[in-house]
């Protein structure tokens, strides 16, 4: 396999899309990749077909790291192009693949600071992404479900994250008599967020978030959990 083919494969870039330029700066441990649709003109780098990216429509998204090297993908903003793993949403800092990876880490309860460290991303970008999710402005629609989080709830009274209880609590179709102040305030905030979140995967993420709270404070939530148990 040629090097350029391998790079296309690694970045999940398929025709009609094509890498048209690469800037590699090993000193900064960053590789910048420009992707554009194929045309019929010649290309100085990747063979017969070439393409160009209009500078005023170019957008850059942080993609999944290549080893220890940060990968930034540049492409034209398009409202009509179908979602691709190597593209991101307009105004968002990450590609869809990177967003999916971050969302999976958040669902697993990994702290935001740790996610920043593991993935070598800035806190500012991560907050921008999280705000987008919480406010319903962005989603994970292009992300395939990568259900991983198997919470250690074997001896717990807390229902699994995929239990209907969480979505019912979050959409307000299920109400509990809540004693713990922090849960009252958290649930109020999350219900507000759920009113504007339409992306199904982000809604699932919120269910995981609420379930994690119950796992963390299971001892203090006996009264609330007994109500959930009766519903089962």
């Amino acid at each position: 396999m040629k090097a350029e083919d391998l790079l296309h494969k690694l970045l999940d870039i398929e025709a009609p899309w094509q890498i048209v330029r690469i800037r590699e700066d090993l000193g900064r441990r960053q590789i910048d990749v420009w992707v554009a649709p194929q045309t019929t003109k010649g290309n100085w780098l990747f063979g017969a077909k070439t393409a160009s990216i209009s500078a005023d429509r170019e957008h850059a998204w942080r993609h999944i790291n290549l080893g220890d090297t940060r990968c930034v993908i540049h492409s034209e903003v398009s409202l009509t192009a179908p979602p691709q793993p190597w593209r991101g949403e307009i105004g968002q800092p990450f590609t869809n693949a990177m967003s999916r990876q971050i969302a999976a880490m958040m669902r697993d309860g990994i702290k935001l600071q740790s996610i920043c460290t593991f993935l070598d991303i800035t806190v500012g970008d991560l907050w921008k992404f999280k705000h987008g999710l919480d406010s319903g402005k962005t989603g994970l629609a292009s992300a395939a479900a990568s259900a991983s989080a198997e919470a250690a709830t074997a001896v717990s009274k807390v229902p699994e994250p995929d239990s209907l209880v969480w979505s019912c609590l979050l959409d307000g179709s299920l109400n509990l008599d809540i004693r713990l102040l922090s849960l009252k305030l958290l649930l109020t905030k999350m219900r507000e967020q759920m009113r504007v979140i339409i992306d199904p995967e982000v809604r699932v993420l919120k269910c995981y978030e609420l379930q994690r709270f119950f796992v963390r404070y299971e001892k203090a939530l006996g009264y609330e959990l007994s109500q959930i148990e009766k519903l089962a």
Partner: peptide
């Protein structure tokens, strides 16, 4: 404050 990281998770 309601949007701070870990808000409501820690007293």
């Amino acid at each position: 404050a309601p949007n701070y990281e870990d808000m409501y998770m820690k007293p």
